[in-house]
Structures are given as C-alpha cells and as structure tokens.
Design a binder for these strands. Structure first.
Length: 891
RNA sequence: GGGCGCAUAGCUCAGAUGGUUAGAGCACUACGUUGACAUCGUAGGGGUCAAUGGUUCGAAUCCGUUUGCGCCCACCA
C-alpha cells in the first residue's frame, strides 16, 4: 500500500477532524423510532460552577465506552447530556465574583443578581460542553438539557404539584440546618461534619429561692439566654431532689424549670444539661416532649438578636467568649475544658451550621423511601457493588423528612401562592392571576426556591420529556445504567429512584455503577470546591484524548479510590506517567498499523482464508484476538473496565506486536517472502482489534479504520466483533508458547554472556518431547529470526553437544549455547548455580506437599497431578544444571 | 458512637470461587537504532504480600484481634 503515514500519531489533528465528522453526520443521535433494543444513559449533569476536572472525565469516559460499545453491539443508544444549575453552589460562586466587584447579592437585587448568574452559567456551561467534546463524548448534543430549562421547569412544576396535592409536600415550622452565610436552610445531607477543637463550659444555675445550684456542661454558652429548662436523668440520685424546682439562668433573672428526661447521659459532663429548643436539635425534641417554649436569640445572619439584650448584634462566636467572660466575672463559670466535637458545616461554604427555627417546606419520605427500598430488594435496581446497596438500604430505612426549601435566588421558585386577603394557599402548575377563592390580586408566590436536588432527582424523567408522554420516554425510559461517584448516592441517586417510582412507576435505571474517586497526588479527593481538580484539557493537550481515556478506563478498576499521579511545576503539567503510558500505547497502535499497511494490498478483504492452510503462528494470533473478543464483551455487562483495558493492552503489545508482528516480519523478509496469508491475517486481526478498541480510543481507531482496506464508513457503525468457536485454536496457542519460550531461552543465554544482538549463533536444543522437537523443527525459521540464530541443532541427548556449553532449562526443552561464544564463564556458572538453587527449592516445596498424606487425601486430582509435574520438571532441571556446571568446571 | 473500605516491588496499582517460582507500568541496571515504533526492543535486579493469632494438608487470598490511613452515617450537650 502506498499510504505514507507519519512516524508518530498526530492526535490533535485526528481528534478535531473526527469529532467534527461525527457531529456533522449526527452519529451520536439516538432515535426512539428504532427497531433495535434501546440502551440509554443520562449523564450526571455537571454543576455549572466551573470547569470539569479529571473526576468528571473519568465518569464521562466510562459512560462513553458503554454507549459506543453497545451501539456497536446492535443497540439503539442514546447518551443524554446536560448541566445542573446547582443552586447554592453556583450562587455562592457568583456571590464571590460580585464581591470582588464591590457588590453583594443584596445591593444588586434579585433580578440583577440572577442575570449575573445566567451570564456565569452560559460561560461555564459552554466551557463544560467544550471539555466534553474534546474528551470525545458521544452525547446526543441535540438533546442538550439544563436543569432550569423550559422542560425541566415544567417537570419540576408537575412533580411539585402532584406531591403537594398528595400531601407529601407540606409547610411547617421546624428546627432546620441553617447556613448563616448563605442565609438558607439546608437538608441534612448538605451538612458536613467536621471535628473541631471546642471548649466545654461548666456553668452554675442557682436554684430559685433557696441555696444550691446545678452545674451543667455546654459547648454553646451563648445560647443560655434561650434556655427553656435544665434537664437531668430521672434516675440520677444526684439531681432527683432538683426535679420540679426552678433555677435562674446565669446573668439573667429568668427562671426555668428543672425537668427529667432519659436523653440525658449521666456520664457526660455533670449529668445535667440545659435545654435550648430553638438552637439545638436534641433540645428541640426534648422541648416538644415537655411542652417548653422556644426562645430565639440568634438571627438568620448568625448574630445575636434583640432577645439577647446587651449582646444584641454580636456575632455568635464573639458572644460565646463574651458570655464566658461575664460568667467568669459573675463567679458562675466553674471551669472550661478542651473538648473535641463534631460540628456541622455548610457543604458549600464551610460555615458552621446554626440550627434555626423557621418556616420551611418539607417532603414526607416514608412512603417514597419504602418504594425505593422495595425496588432495590426486588432487584429492579441493582448496585454493581453490594456494599453500596447496603449503605443505600440503611439510609432509606432511617430516613427523615426532606427539607426542600432554600432561601436562595437561584433555582426553581416554589410554585405555591398565598392570598394576602383570605389567606388561601395552593400549588399551581401555571402561574395564577389572582386568588381562585376570593379573586384578590394580592396573591403572592413563595419567595423560596427548591433544593437543587429536587430538579436533579427528576433528571432521567425530565430529559426524556416527562411530564409529557413522549416517544422518547416510552422507548428510552428506564435507562440502563447510572454511572457516578459515590458521594452523591443519597443526594441524587436515591432521589431519582424515588421520583422515578413515584411519577413513572418505574425505576429510572436498572444498574447503578459507582466508580472510583480520583484523588490528587497528595491523596485528597479531586474536587472543584476543594480546588484540587485537574483540568482534563491539560492532559488531552499533552497526551491526546485517547490516551487520557484509556488511562481512566484502566485506572477505575472495581471502585477503589485512585491517586492520579500528575506532576505540576508552577501550575504547568510536567508529566502524568499513567497517561503517558497510554500515549505510548496509542503510538504503538499507530506504528503497528504503519507496518501492517505496508504489507496489506489495497484490494483484499478482512475475511480469512481457510484456517487449516495457515501457520501455527497465524492461528495462534487469530485465536488470541478471538479470545479477547469474548472476554471484552463479557466485561461490558459486568462493568469490568479493568478487563477491557488490560485485554486490549496486553494482547496488542505483547502478543500482536512483540510476538506476531516480529514473527511475520521475519517470514516476510525471508527469502521466500512469505505468502499472502500473512497480510490476510494481519488485516483480520487489526480489523477486529480496531473495533474492540474503538469505544476506549475512538479517535485513533476511526483514523486508522479508514486506512485499512475493506473498512466501510465510520467505525462507529461497525459491529462489535463476536467470539467464534471456529476461530479458537488452543493447540496452536500451546505450540506458539513453546516456540516463544525457546526463543526466550536463547535470548536469555545470549544476554547472559553479552553476545552482540547482531551476531548469529549456533544453538543446540534437546526437546522435552519428540513432539516439541518436531515443532521446533517446523518453526525453525521463526525461532532463528527471533533469536538471531544461524543454526539450530536438535539433539536427542547431551552427547552430541560440545561439552563446554552453557545451558538454559526452559520448561519445554534444554537450550545450549556452545562455550566458544562464552567470555565470562565464571559469572555464567554463578548464574546457573543460582538457577539450580531455585530448582532445589522448588523440589523441596513439591516434595513436602507430595509426601503429605493429608494433601494427597484432600487436594483435587488436578492439583496433585500439577504438583507432580512441577516436581518432575524441577528435578530434571536441577539435575541438568548440576551436570552442566560440572561439565563447565571440569573441562 | 455505629458502618464501610484500604494496607502487595522506590512510586501508582493488578492479583473471581484458597494450591503462582506473587504480576504490570513507571523508576533502576546492562546491551541495542540494518525502515513499524527510542513515545522502541532484548535481557535483568528489586517484595518475610502492615502486625499477630486462628481455620486448613495448603493462606497475599478465609476468620478473629491489633496498628496505620481514608470515607460514610450519627441529636453525648
């Protein structure tokens, strides 16, 4: 063939060319009119908070591999892309940005501020899409969605409306998690727990009207002004006499009762505890049990309010120290102790959460959770790793109501209106003009927006058209698999399952595959919010998208966390060895193609000639690619990405390049020039290999596909190669193993005595069996070429071989290199002695087993036979080595 | 306080259902550019599989305990 290929694969050019081609040809489109079985995935929509990092790249690559692979396997595939408005996270980002411009969300006002967020969204939303494209994602871009687009808004409205009408959504005044910086409520899942060095303050509450006091321990003395009671354990003899009496809150003259409740741990602190219902979840519950009033002393900004008297306006933490000082001065602070406790912080801005009593919207979870739980138990949705199913179940079994309202500006506004005149309140699918009850125009929508996870929970539904009964929904729902990292199993995966069951009566996906979390070199999780993310474009620019993709597929394994080794110098990427490895691999593929194309005539087809007319080497490599066709296909269904990556890597590099091509090369360059069969086999193997590789390395495979004869159209439309029984040749695989082992033995001998690679040598072989002898004779040329031997003498025993020879005991045969070639004999003998010692050790181990009656009684026959074989082999090897050493020494 | 995961070569990681001489890539050593590829080839060196008990004829692999690291859940103030 006359094509001139560059020496190195030019990935940048190929990537641009083929991605344009695919999108122009609408190759990523999935149609609900198809007769093929559906295979759909909806992308976990990345937050529009900034660019993607490598963690996303991994997530996306794993999905793209499935989509591309399954398409080739005959499915009608669609991968629905989109982004998430990410309420609180994005709002925070934009707040930070406008602060730099000297503004706040309040100075700008709601409308202006939201405009700013849309600008941000457009900027980063587009950047994200560009990153996805560079990575090679085969998303159906015509279906691109956003969690706040028209369709999603409609879905959110519908869902909210239904849940409201069903009584699942309700408004209530509760103690919720409040972020004083974001000034919004948060769900329990949006609170992170952090261990902190705190102090435990011991405070005295004087008994009213008599002598005596109770000392309590608290970490939050600033809340004493909101105390409603002092609580002790009912069985605690130390305090029994106090129960029912009143004590005075320190620094005030307000009296509160001493009550008894079993929540109190007698061992903790003094065994007495203050109850502050409005500022602590435990106390809130206790307050409810004992009908205690809730005093509020901290406002929505985390500052002390007017109820706090002289502390009014003070920050809560400042107030803490001030009150502690005041208590100290008043002689009511007994002591303070250092204390480590876990404090809730906002998952977006790290601010310490304030339990805050306020009106919020909630969703009852019991019923939704039960259905999700049942669906998992019935196998309708399956976690590919059992341990995640367990945590999923445990969470659902202990679920609490979900606080869905947020006091943010960025998000889906709660579609509930309340009448200023008659007080009528209701949810609406369409914005109402006036109060349907009294006709008043003073009919106002709730100011709050919904938890961002409410809309993402509807994602598989909304992206396919719900609430409309679309053909897409009918055909592509439920989707096949959800691929994600483990940190959003509850926040997102569980909610999607609940909503899918609630609104469509079907789980949104049958499989959930949780992949590894990528860590930076320092072991910290890669994350945008932590600033530890690495931009995939840096790696794509340096090594190519295919290389990055392969490395990510290879790394993901079965879900372990992985440190991604990438070296940076002054913010510049120096080296990422794990990606470099696959850049090299891509280059290897490229160059192997270069070689093959040189021998493949343009007019041949990838069909094989009669396999019985082929050489053992030919059948061996055909059998090899056939085997990995099966292994890789199976791996798709078990999400065994490591199998996919390893099979492709090892087969191609070790078997195809290092062995087969080297063998063929020697045949082709030998005097008779080989037969046309070699070209046919090269084409056959390469053709199949490209198709197997394509889902992982789409660009280079598409590029090469068009260069090989008989490859019509895009490789994306080619079929996935099937395993065929007729192409399995275990005998030839065995044969070739023997050949390669013999080659290796000769090479090893040569290297041991530093014979120049070019120098041809004469070697003697005593084959282990007659069969192997025949085989070596038959494959003589191959062995000669691969081992740079000029003559191979097959001997039946030691007698015909020059006595002064060094030997290598391969398992199939003994190989001898005459000592004429030997320069450093002593070193050689030393090496052989080492070998012999190893063999002796093996003999001992085998003997120990075989003389053990229990072993013989318990072990499988096959194991015993194998052990015997091992023993015989080791014994023979040792004997021969000893003999050789003697010969070398003696003469 | 519960639950989970992980500890294997200098580094990053593989090692279903227990029986291997414990593997790969990078790094390291030696040698090597006669046209596929130096982003390469050939041959090597390197590990008491965290510790400790136990089950078993046999454990890197199964069980208990310990140590170290990481994660999730949780209302001991």
């Amino acid at each position: 063939m006359s094509i001139e290929l560059e020496k190195n694969y030019n990935y940048a050019e190929a990537e641009k060319k083929w991605y344009e081609y695919w999108t122009n040809e609408k190759m990523f489109a999935g149609s609900s009119d198809s007769k093929k079985p559906p295979y759909s995935i909806v992308i976990p929509p990345p937050n529009v908070t900034g660019e993607l990092h490598l963690g996303h790249a991994m997530d996306h690559t794993l999905q793209d591999v499935l989509i591309r692979g399954k398409k080739m396997m005959g499915f009608e595939t669609v991968w629905v892309p989109g982004t998430d408005h990410a309420g609180i996270a994005t709002q925070k980002k934009v707040e930070d940005k406008v602060r730099k411009e000297g503004e706040t969300r309040y100075t700008l006002g709601r409308e202006k501020f939201i405009e700013k967020i849309w600008e941000w969204k457009n900027l980063y939303g587009n950047q994200i899409i560009e990153q996805c494209k560079r990575l090679g994602n085969s998303c159906d871009w015509d279906r691109l969605r956003f969690t706040m687009d028209e369709g999603c808004c409609k879905a959110v409205r519908e869902a909210f409306y239904r849940l409201y009408k069903k009584g699942i959504i309700y408004k209530g005044r509760r103690l919720i998690n409040w972020c004083p910086r974001c000034r919004t409520a948060l769900s329990d899942l949006e609170v992170n727990h952090k261990d902190m060095d705190s102090k435990l303050y011991y405070l005295r509450y004087m008994v009213k009207g008599e002598e005596g006091f109770i000392t309590i321990a608290t970490t939050r003395p600033e809340t004493i002004l909101a105390d409603a009671a002092i609580c002790v354990h009912p069985e605690d003899d130390r305090y029994k006499s106090f129960i029912g009496k009143e004590v005075i809150i320190p620094l005030t003259d307000r009296a509160i009762p001493v009550i008894a409740d079993e929540v109190v741990e007698r061992d903790f602190g003094t065994g007495a505890l203050k109850i502050t219902p409005a500022h602590d979840p435990t106390d809130y519950e206790a307050g409810k049990r004992h009908n205690l009033p809730s005093y509020i002393v901290i406002d929505e900004n985390g500052k002390m309010n007017s109820e706090a008297g002289k502390y009014c306006g003070m920050d809560r933490f400042e107030c803490r120290t001030r009150i502690a000082e005041d208590l100290e001065n008043a002689g009511l602070l007994e002591k303070t102790e250092d204390y480590k406790n876990s404090v809730g912080v906002c998952y977006r801005c790290d601010t310490v959460i304030e339990p805050y009593l306020s009106w919020q919207w909630f969703a009852h979870m019991d019923d939704l959770a039960k259905r999700a739980l049942d669906a998992e138990k019935e196998g309708k949705v399956r976690f590919t790793q059992e341990r995640y199913a367990n945590t999923f179940r445990t969470w659902l079994e202990n679920i609490k109501d979900w606080c869905i309202s947020r006091q943010l500006w960025w998000g889906h506004r709660i579609p509930v209106w309340t009448c200023g005149e008659c007080g009528h309140m209701d949810a609406f699918k369409e914005d109402p003009e006036c109060c349907p009850k009294c006709g008043s125009k003073n009919f106002n929508q709730e100011e709050d927006v919904l938890d961002t996870w409410f809309s993402s929970g509807l994602w598989p539904l909304s992206t396919l058209g719900w609430p409309n009964e679309t053909k897409d929904l009918d055909f592509f729902y439920p989707t096949k698999v959800l691929i994600t990292a483990r940190d959003i199993i509850f926040l997102w995966v569980a909610r999607m399952i609940m909503f899918g069951l609630e609104f469509k009566n079907e789980v949104p996906f049958s499989d959930v595959h949780v992949h590894a979390t990528l860590l930076g070199k320092d072991g910290r999780r890669m994350s945008k919010s932590l600033g530890t993310g690495v931009d995939p474009l840096l790696l794509i620019d340096k090594y190519g998208a295919d290389a990055l993709r392969f490395s990510l597929v290879h790394l993901t394994g079965q879900g372990q966390d992985i440190k991604f080794p990438a070296d940076f110098k002054n913010g510049k990427l120096e080296r990422a060895e794990r990606v470099e490895k696959f850049r090299n691999y891509a280059n290897k593929v490229w160059n192997a193609a270069r070689f093959c194309l040189g021998y493949i005539p343009e007019d041949i087809k990838p069909e094989l000639p009669d396999t019985s007319k082929l050489s053992a080497a030919d059948r061996w490599i055909i059998s090899g690619i056939n085997r990995i066709c099966r292994d890789i296909k199976n791996a798709y269904d078990t999400y065994s990405y490591d199998v996919i990556a390893n099979s492709l890597y090892d087969f191609f590099w070790d078997d195809f390049c290092d062995r087969y091509i080297e063998t063929v090369k020697s045949v082709l360059s030998s005097e008779n020039g080989g037969t046309s069969n070699e070209a046919q086999v090269l084409l056959h193997v390469f053709n199949k290999f490209l198709r197997l590789l394509h889902p992982v390395m789409p660009f280079i495979t598409e590029e090469l596909w068009h260069l090989f004869p008989g490859c019509e159209g895009s490789i994306m439309n080619a079929s996935f190669p099937e395993y065929e029984d007729a192409l399995s040749f275990p005998e030839d695989e065995k044969t070739m193993e023997s050949v390669f082992e013999t080659v290796k033995a000769i090479r090893s001998l040569r290297a041991d005595v530093s014979i120049a690679p070019k120098k041809k040598v004469k070697v003697y072989v005593i084959p282990g069996t007659d069969e192997i002898g025949d085989l070596i004779k038959k494959e003589e040329q191959t062995i000669k070429n691969l081992a740079s031997a000029e003559e191979i003498v097959i001997a039946s025993d030691r007698s015909g071989i020059p006595s002064k020879s060094i030997a290598c005991m391969a398992s199939v045969s003994q190989v001898f290199l005459p000592a004429l070639e030997i320069e450093n004999l002593d070193k050689q003998i030393e090496g052989m002695e080492k070998e012999a010692a190893k063999a002796v050790k093996a003999i001992e181990a085998a003997n120990k087993k075989l003389s053990n009656e229990a072993f013989l009684a318990h072990a499988d026959e096959g194991i015993i036979a194998k052990e015997k074989e091992k023993l015989a082999e080791a014994e023979a090897k040792a004997a021969k080595l000893v003999e050789q050493i003697k010969v070398l020494r003696g003469n």
